[in-house]
C-alpha cells in the first residue's frame, strides 16, 4: 500500500516538519487499519499524533463501496429493493420501506391504511434491533460483554417475526410496491405479542446494568461529544443529532406512513457525548415499543396492498374461479 509510506508532499509531512514541541518532541504518524471498527465497514485512518493525542485523521472509507447506484441503473424498481437490504442490515426493513415509499411517491400510489400501520410496526421493530445492537455493542466496547449476549436473544425473536412475515431474517427484502406481499399470518401477531411482553423486562434490566454504572459512565461521559451547531453543520440526523440537543425527528416533522396517528415523544440529549447517545437510543426503544402497541391496538382492517396490478399477481382463487373473457 502506497499510503503506508507517507509521500513527501502529503500535508502531514509538512505539518510534522514545521511543528516542534517545547520539549523537543516531534509529531508522528500512525496508520490505523484497514480495520473493522464495527465488525464491518472496514476503513483506514492515517493519524497525526502528538504523543497519545490524535490531532488529525485522514480516513479512507471506500474499501467496501459496492456501487449500488450503478447496479440500480439497470434494474427495474422491484429489483433494487434487495440492494437496500445491504445498506444497513441491522435494520434492513427500514431501508426496504424507505425504498418502497420513494417508488410509491414516484408512481403516485396511495398505500392502504392497514399496510401503512403494518409498515410502522415493522419499521419500529427494525429500529429496536438497530438500537439494541448499537447500545449493547457499546457495552462490549467499554468492557461489559454480558449485556450484549443478554439482549441479543431478543434480536433473534424479532428475526423470527420477520421470518414469519416475509420468509427472510437478516436481509429481508420485505414488502412490495404499494404494500406487503401477503397478509401477516396469525403466528406473526402471536410472536409479536410475546415479544412485546418479554422484551421490556429484559430491556429494563439492560438499562439498569448500564445507566448508573460507574465504569460505564467513566468511559462514556464527555467522550466524543459534539455541539448542536457542529452536528447540524456536519449533517447529523437521527439519534446522534438528538443527543446533541436538537429535537428534530423526521417522523414528527414530515410524518410518513401514518406516523401522525401515533403519540410518542422525541428524546433529546444535552451534550452530544457517547453517554447521551446511549441514553437517547435507550429512550427511543421505549417509544418504539409504545408505537408498536398503539399500531396494534388501532390496526385497521382492509387490503394489504394498493391496487397496482402491475406489481402483484391476482389472488389465486380469482385466477382459477373467475372467468371474465
Amino acid at each position: 500500500m502506497s499510503d503506508l509510506l507517507l509521500l513527501p508532499e502529503h500535508r502531514y509531512a509538512k505539518i510534522i516538519e514545521q511543528t516542534r514541541n517545547e520539549d523537543g518532541s516531534e509529531l508522528s504518524i500512525l496508520n490505523l487499519g484497514p480495520t473493522h471498527p464495527a465488525t464491518h465497514g472496514i476503513f483506514q485512518n492515517i493519524l497525526l499524533m502528538d504523543g497519545e493525542r490524535i490531532l488529525d485523521a485522514e480516513p479512507t472509507i471506500g474499501y467496501i463501496h459496492r456501487a449500488f447506484e450503478k447496479i440500480a441503473e439497470n434494474r427495474p424498481f422491484y429489483q433494487v429493493n434487495v440492494l437496500t437490504d445491504r445498506m444497513n442490515y441491522c435494520s434492513s426493513p427500514i431501508n426496504n420501506m424507505a425504498w418502497w415509499m420513494t417508488v410509491e411517491k414516484l408512481l403516485d400510489i396511495e398505500v392502504p391504511k392497514r399496510a401503512q400501520y403494518l409498515r410502522v410496526i415493522v419499521m419500529e421493530l427494525a429500529r429496536i434491533t438497530d438500537h439494541l445492537i448499537c447500545n449493547s455493542i457499546l457495552g462490549v466496547d467499554t468492557g461489559a460483554y454480558t449485556g450484549f449476549l443478554y439482549v441479543f436473544q431478543f434480536r433473534e425473536k424479532i428475526y423470527e417475526i420477520y421470518e414469519e412475515i416475509c420468509g427472510a431474517r437478516l436481509t429481508t427484502n420485505m414488502g412490495r410496491i404499494g404494500g406487503f406481499e401477503r397478509e401477516w399470518s396469525p403466528k406473526a401477531f402471536e410472536l409479536l405479542n410475546t415479544f412485546l411482553e418479554e422484551f421490556p423486562v429484559c430491556w429494563k434490566e439492560f438499562e439498569n446494568l448500564f445507566e448508573r454504572n460507574r465504569i460505564f459512565i467513566d468511559r462514556t461521559v464527555n467522550v466524543g461529544s459534539i455541539t448542536a451547531e457542529k452536528a447540524m453543520a456536519y449533517g447529523f440526523t437521527g439519534p446522534n443529532l438528538r443527543a446533541a440537543g436538537i429535537d428534530y425527528d423526521v417522523r414528527v416533522a414530515q410524518p410518513y406512513s401514518s406516523y401522525e396517528d401515533f403519540d410518542f415523544i422525541v428524546p433529546v440529549g444535552k451534550s452530544g457525548d457517547t453517554y447521551d447517545r446511549f441514553c437517547v437510543r435507550n429512550a427511543e426503544v421505549w417509544e418504539s415499543l409504545s408505537i408498536i402497541r398503539q399500531a396494534l391496538a388501532k390496526l385497521p382492517e382492509g387490503p394489504i396492498h394498493a391496487d397496482v396490478p402491475d406489481y402483484y399477481l391476482p389472488p389465486k382463487e380469482d385466477v382459477y374461479n373467475i372467468w371474465k373473457a
Binding site: I61, G62, H65, A67, E69, K70
Partner: peptide, 14 residues
C-alpha cells in the same frame, strides 16, 4: 480527492 474509489483510478464511473 477521491473518497470511495481508489486514488489510482482514472475514470469517473457514474
Amino acid at each position: 480527492k477521491r473518497i470511495l474509489n481508489m486514488d489510482e483510478m482514472i475514470s469517473h464511473p457514474m
